[in-house]
Amino acid sequence: MVANGTIRERAHDIVEEFGLFDDWMGKYEYLIEIGQALPSLDNRYKTEAHRIHGCQAQVWVRPEMKNGLVFYEGDSDALITKGLVALLIRVLSGQPPQEIVQADLEFLDEIGMKDHLSSTRRNGLASMVKQLKLFALAHTGSA
């Protein structure tokens, strides 16, 4: 699924959606739902090359350049982690590499998921973001 709009607009939509839930449980249930809705990555792409390290769960992300835009697919064997992967893909996939490199991703804080970015959480969200950006950075010249 590729959403419309800029990174900022897509992030804003996500913040509004999570704003509908007033407690952590609702937010997490919604995150889990988002994770469940993300199509699984084809097994042949679940390779070491696509693996994000630093995660207690297994996480794979497969980036691809198409017409000067970066597209991401991803997966995880843990649902909360997969929900976070799905959010990142929804915000970043189909964007120009330069935009991805500069994205601030503050929305994770606004929806109450910021602590997942901490390296001590061992879910690798921080390394995930780094990998997504690194791929974009490598292609900033081709846009």
Binding site: Q56, A57, A78, L79, R122
Partner: peptide, 10 residues
Amino acid sequence: DIHPYDAGTI
């Protein structure tokens, strides 16, 4: 089949 990470987070 719940991943330990998910369980621990909740």
